[in-house]
């Protein structure tokens, strides 16, 4: 079955950057109430020199292979990156996962996240794959970051949104 790509199984068996670490600027706990998956996630954001950077992301994920692997890929993709770039990656991942299979995802933007393209065809599993990513966005907000999503249409609620730079579609 195309859902369980080798990359996903690898990440779920040996999740990268797993475990909760100090220091951190925010910690969040997110759950998927339909299945009971949960993730505790910490971010450390530093703003030395003006640009906010994700210094660290650590997590304790309890759940299915999709949700654990997805948190692992998230950590790979955002640690050490400017918050603005990390948010673009989150948006690209979200776009792919909620596209019902129409958007393949760009490896340049979401890295191993492309292995999750098949998840988009299983609506019940999209929440599993998004669990860590949603938690990460929440943790950024709690760290004082502006997490307004880039939008393709102007919304009065997202006046501070950056121009759309989401991953390529195919």
């Amino acid at each position: 079955m195309d859902l369980y790509q080798e990359l996903i199984l690898e990440h779920s068996k040996r999740p990268h950057h797993a475990g909760l670490r100090e220091p951190f600027t925010a910690e969040v706990h997110h759950i998927n109430p339909t299945c009971g998956d949960e993730v505790t996630l910490r971010v450390a954001v530093s703003e030395d020199g003006g640009e906010a950077v994700v210094q660290d992301l650590s997590y304790d994920a309890k759940g299915c292979s999709i949700s654990v692997a997805s948190s692992s890929v998230l950590a790979d993709e955002v640690i050490g990156r400017p918050v603005s770039e990390a948010l673009e990656t989150v948006e690209a991942m979200r776009t792919m996962l909620t596209s019902k299979g129409k958007v393949a995802g760009d490896e340049e933007v979401i890295g191993d996240g492309v292995a999750f393209a098949g998840v988009a065809k299983y609506p019940a599993r999209v929440k599993c794959a998004l669990l860590g990513w949603t938690a990460f966005t929440d943790a950024l907000a709690r760290s004082g970051q502006d997490i307004a999503r880039p939008r393709t249409t102007t919304s009065p609620l997202s006046s501070s949104a950056k121009p759309t730079t989401t991953g390529a579609t195919s």
């Binding site: 079955m1 859902l3 369980y4 339909t34 299945c35 009971g36 998956d37 759940g63 299915c64 292979s65 999709i66 299983y122 599993r125 599993c128």
Partner: peptide, 28 residues
């Protein structure tokens, strides 16, 4: 193996089961 993953493999074979806490979280 998480039940969600078990259920997905079964579903792939056409076998429909329920996975999760079945609305009995404290029991789980």
């Amino acid at each position: 193996v998480h039940a969600h993953d078990v259920g997905q493999v079964l579903d792939d074979a056409g076998v429909a089961v329920r996975v999760g806490h079945h609305c009995a979280w404290p029991l789980h």
